[in-house]
Design a binder for these strands. Structure first.
Lengths: 336, 336
DNA sequence: GTGAAAGCGCTAACAC
DNA sequence: GTGTTAGCGCTTTCAC
């Protein structure tokens, strides 16, 4: 029971053969070296007995491939990014890569620093999700020849995969229009868009989808119908409270820009009586299991997490990246 | 604008000095080598200009320290483990280690395989959270001399840090007793415990805390008051529905064993009228922000995630581990 | 069918 | 104050 960790040299000595033979046997290339099945079996058994473990720092140094694949996300404490991590974990494993996920808290400086660290570990490629400065990250990766893809938020200097925000918002809006009912006052007889950041590409496209769907039915959308108050739950809560006071009740329909906007809205809505809730149609871009807790239907656009990452892996694998982002359709989840 | 990645050899040539000097300057040990500030500055400037990046595979191979610290968790799609990942990420960074988190889906075989992979990357230490087979993991780590700690679920073969489950359940139960009101029938005039797995150490201690607090006030607890129906939300929902039918309403108070039990319970409870909800006191071991969506107070034991990981890092850092698990008190979050 | 030997990029002991 | 050198454990020609 050797207490020292064994190397291919130890195994070679024990098996009365050479390190290169052991190496070939252990990494599967022994067939093409035409090593006899006999020695192969002998060495394999020995490795198992000695609980030999490959030193991937050494093998990576030699081959200049680490087998590590990085992903940066804003935070682990968000349901959407939790699902991203989970899918990424599975898909990386399927490709025999070791995932290494780091959170960068939407801080551009931390994003760059983290990516530099990952690069120093010689990651083979990188998935950048929800980055505040995707192009800064790209510059670093480019210089070090690290393949990378932006997911969720697009960048100009690397291939990107995003949700089909315009289509998704349009579908969701159409659903809300179909399920909503006329309201007594003009200000309430309208659809409202709540949450998001107008500087953000995703928000812009969602608003556009909303506007393009509302306009043919109700005429031009007024500025007051778009409340892009940010991604924080508290902001959405405050904004909705104000809206409610201003127009004297809930509107005909309400489209929340993101899952945190929905969370904020629910905090306000949960104390309203059932009749008021049932008079309004609710939609949310982004899906959250707890939305079912509200006592009325919430229609949701569920992002296709696996679809996004599948496309990302294809692009990393060298698929022809056009200059335009790949758009992945989300899925409508009816709340009934 | 060199397109090849630069090494300390390149820098040494450019700076007219030797690789070892460059190495010392770049890794901060140059003071003790008494290298002149002048050369130090020259080399540092050069490194910056060339965007030199340390190859940590090479340096790790040489020093046999990788700077990587691993953590295995059951899943990223759970709020509690999301918080764990986030804290771990921050704390590892503070200690200048690169965190590497892998999910193992409560699958013992996958746990072992994953840990072996992490070890092949020469992780310096490992935090094992919520493992189904902590002792199997310990065996592997022991053989490879990898320092490790169990968190949340204890093991016999490594130091462990767990929530103070007995204390927490007792406090929560006391709160529920204090806030509850008598109910019309004997079966309803009792406290019930819902969720968890009796084979599980954590559940055992929580039940014990519940029983020890209820007994002095109401007399012996009957078996029907303990419904350890597992960790799945759907099971808790079904169990609660059955209980409601059996005893003809909600009981005096209900203690949910875990956050998923709470989620399941809420799915059933959300359709009940306010009066019924307000007649029952709700408690949950584990905290979830969405619990506020219920239209009545839920008292929660919030696990001290930072406290758990702080203790874990101390144990990894070599603090004397007694054979008994370190217990960290959770925090009572009153629902009012 | 197998072995010897060079070298991936870095660090640290030792030399001067 | 700085340079030389020997490996860390592995892979991969090349030689036989």
């Amino acid at each position: 029971m050797a207490t020292k960790k064994s190397t291919i040299y130890d195994l070679a000595t024990l098996a009365q053969t050479s390190p290169s033979t052991v190496s070939a046997i252990l990494n599967g290339t022994w067939q093409q070296r035409r090593i006899s099945a006999q020695t192969a079996l002998r060495v394999q058994a020995l490795a198992q007995k000695q609980k030999y473990s490959l030193n991937r720092q050494a093998s990576g140094l030699r081959t200049s491939r680490s087998g590590l694949i990085g992903m940066v996300i804003p935070t682990h404490e968000d349901y959407f990014f939790g699902m991203m991590s989970q899918s990424f974990d599975r898909m990386a494993r399927e490709r025999r890569q070791q995932p290494i996920v780091a959170s960068t808290l939407r801080d551009p400086a931390l994003e760059i620093e983290t990516v530099k660290t990952l690069i120093s570990y010689q990651i083979d490629s990188l998935v950048v999700t929800g980055a505040s400065d995707p192009d800064g990250v790209s510059r670093v990766c480019r210089h070090h020849h690290v393949m990378h893809v932006n997911v969720d938020l697009p960048g100009k200097r690397a291939p990107s995969v995003i949700s089909d925000n315009h289509w998704g918002a349009a579908q969701l809006t159409a659903t809300l229009i179909a399920r909503s009912r006329p309201q007594p006052t003009p200000a309430r007889d309208r659809l409202y868009f709540l949450g998001g950041v107008t500087a953000d590409h995703a928000t812009q496209r969602r608003i556009q989808g909303f506007v393009d769907t509302v306009t043919p039915v109700f005429g031009p959308v007024e500025a007051s119908q778009i409340q892009a108050c940010g991604y924080e739950a508290a902001a959405a809560e405050a904004e909705l409270r104000a809206l409610y006071a201003r127009i004297g009740g809930l509107p005909r329909a309400l489209l929340m820009a993101a899952s945190l906007s929905l969370e904020g809205a629910i905090r306000f809505l949960r104390v309203l009586p059932d009749e008021e809730l049932q008079a309004c149609a609710f939609g949310s871009y982004d899906w959250h299991p707890y939305a079912a807790f509200l006592r009325c239907p919430v229609h949701m656009m569920r992002q296709d997490v696996d679809g996004l990452l599948d496309a990302a892996f294809k692009l990393i694998g060298g698929a022809r990246g056009s200059s335009r982002p790949v758009e992945i359709r989300p899925q409508l989840m009816l709340g009934d």
